[in-house]
Write a protein that binds this DNA or RNA. Structure first.
Lengths: 247, 247
DNA sequence: TAGTGGTCTAGACCACTAT
DNA sequence: TAGTGGTCTAGACCACTAG
């Protein structure tokens, strides 16, 4: 038996192996607890070196798809409690992943001078120009969140001329400005809805709200966006996957 | 110049390099934005192969200490907004890391039969015996959180005979039962304090509460604990670091 | 003892970036 | 053109686990 790879492809060999295995796991062809081919077997099957097979298994491990036990083997991990683990996707992609239809209503779109906090978050100088967007986020036409976002103007000229109600902000940043989101910091806290939030989300005053403050960065650590999202607590939970990064 | 490693040590060479660099970054000897030695330089300095140097840099990258730009080099990342990024530490370790003095008061310690939800979370059968602990968590002697935890009895015989007020649960699990926490899933939501929570935390009824539900697993994916922690929203925020795991 | 994952070597070619 | 990170090879020895 062998598993042929496309050696002419631009896609690295380890990434091809990673994809093949991930698909098998997601299709349940490799069930939870089942053994995955060992590093040496996989190398033989795919006609690659063991280090390359190992790299594929390592990335699957870091994503939580498999786990490894020394002296025993590599096995498919149990499915996570909630597959909607928080990642770098934007609202649009996240809602689609949950099988909901996302939409947006722009409440505010302005250019402002950055205050000291926003400037610090974005790594720019206070007084530099920023876009300030406020949007109501809906899922299946029901209000889910109120969003308050700041982006540096100089990195995204004319961003405010794009159609942010029709198109995903993250998609525009990628296709128009070539931005690849790389990592983000999120701070979550709980609060009670004030008048403004309650009205926007059509909930009672003082209803519980989950605030997610996210700052997104590119690989070279330039801040792309600082955004606070106020979610209705009765319709949204945030799921995270934590690993022991001790390597 | 060279950076000698201890080749007789049990600690892998790449981990030694990782530690040296991490310490330099944390001591600010390597400042944000500064170039880290390239993979080839580092290999030469430490007298290791390039792959080993690369492994050290990769683990630093995955922890967010450095970033790499193809064709340019490796650089120290800006310090994260909040160094208290959520990790696998328990309450005791987390509070100490924040410079606060943690303490606990046990409100309940019982053996029960697992209900269907708890059983599913722990990967055991409904009706199997579980420990049920409720603790009040204090930081600097002020109530911070109410905690509701379940652990499978068969994996931790006599756990309820240990002193959970004096010692960290995670420490006991490690030293007595040899458990190494490996990964966890967390679901965060916002709510309002009910009578019981409000009384325990000495806050007003309906004050905002951040609920963190965590299930911790070992490397071989056995559930160790399912715990819901109800934090006073005015005294606690949760910080996460997200990466684009596309490798 | 045979097989596993963990670590390590000493090379190699590639695409990319800066000068 | 020189230097960088990204990928890949074909080996090696180790500690660990199971039968």
């Amino acid at each position: 038996m062998n598993l042929p790879l496309d050696r002419a492809s631009q896609v690295p060999l380890y990434a091809q192996i990673h994809e093949k295995l991930r698909r098998q796991i997601e299709r349940d062809e490799l069930k939870a607890g089942a053994a995955v081919p060992s590093e040496r077997e996989l190398a033989e099957l795919c006609k690659v070196s063991r280090m390359t097979a190992r790299q594929a298994l390592n990335s699957l491990k870091s994503e939580g798809f498999v786990y490894q036990e020394r002296g025993i083997g590599t096995f498919v991990a149990k499915r996570k409690l909630d597959v909607h683990t928080r990642n770098l996707a934007g609202f649009t992609e996240e809602m689609r992943g949950r099988g909901l239809v996302p939409s947006s209503k722009i409440l505010l779109s302005e250019r402002e001078r950055a205050g000291p906090d926003t400037a610090t978050e974005l790594g720019i100088n206070a007084g530099d120009e920023v876009f300030h967007f406020q949007r109501l986020r809906l899922a299946d036409d029901l209000p889910l969140a109120f969003e308050d976002a700041y982006l540096p103007v100089r990195r995204f000229p004319d961003l405010d001329k794009k159609n942010l109600e029709k198109e995903s902000l993250y998609k525009i940043l990628g296709s128009v400005y070539g931005i690849v989101m790389h990592h983000a910091e999120e701070v979550l806290e709980a609060t009670c809805a004030d008048r403004k939030i309650a009205d926007a989300l059509k909930i009672k005053l003082k209803s519980p709200i989950l605030i997610v403050h996210r700052v997104v960065f590119t690989e070279s650590n330039l801040a792309v966006e600082s955004v606070r999202t106020f979610y209705r607590a009765d319709r949204y939970r945030a799921t995270f996957f934590l690993t022991n990064n001790a390597v």
